[in-house]
């Protein structure tokens, strides 16, 4: 399959929202939306949960904290203790700045690469790319696509809902 089974193009965000509302009301939830900007208002309607990336970032930050402190402890306490002016080798306050920076660095790298991994970016191609004019989804067009329908009747009903929500065009893939 090189094409989503059903795709509808809208010219405004409001129309997209209306279409998603109408589709969700009739329990079509396996939809994907495309918009040039973030529309968090669609998430609740489609039953999308909040991303759990945050927990991964917490883990990354903690790892960074431990590694950064560990390196300093290893270097200045274990491997090569340097005694100057009677100061302790294990100088906790002096290790705080680099530990903090290590934590932030690791957490940020986790957030950045985490989102790329979760979204499988970089992505060379998606089926929607085959639709003529789909590239305007990053500029000024809004799209809804769906692939899973119980029957052709079911799909036609979804197409009808999209049209009545003000779709500029609805594309139904022939099987």
């Amino acid at each position: 399959m090189t094409h989503p089974r059903l795709a509808a193009e809208f010219t405004t965000a409001d129309a997209l929202q209306a279409a998603v509302d109408a589709l969700a009301r009739e329990h079509y939830r396996e939809l994907e939306t495309y918009a040039p900007f973030d529309m968090p208002e669609l998430d609740a309607k489609l039953g999308r949960r909040r991303s759990r990336l945050g927990w991964v970032v917490v883990a990354g930050g903690l790892a960074g904290l431990i590694i950064a402190y560990g390196i300093q402890w290893w270097a200045n306490v274990h491997s090569y203790p340097l005694y100057v002016g009677g100061r302790p080798a294990h100088a906790v306050p002096a290790f705080v700045p680099a530990t903090f920076e290590g934590m932030i660095l690791a957490a940020s790298l986790t957030a950045f690469f985490g989102v790329l991994i979760v979204l499988r970016l970089p992505k060379l191609w998606i089926p929607e790319d085959e639709i003529d004019g789909f590239s305007r989804a990053s500029v000024d067009r809004f799209w809804v696509t769906a692939n899973h329908f119980a029957s052709d009747l079911d799909r036609d009903r979804a197409a009808e809902l999209m049209r009545s929500a003000g779709a500029r065009r609805v594309i139904v893939a022939e099987d």
């Binding site: 994907e32 968090p40 489609l46 999308r48 940020s108 957030a111 970016l121 989804a137 990053s138």
Partner: peptide, 23 residues
């Protein structure tokens, strides 16, 4: 990076971006 602006993309992106701001 092959960004398409899908709802799924925005959902994770939003969290990652806000987290980076928070960090």
């Amino acid at each position: 990076l092959g960004w398409h602006g899908s709802g799924t993309e925005w959902r994770h992106y939003r969290v990652a971006y806000t987290l980076l701001a928070g960090l």
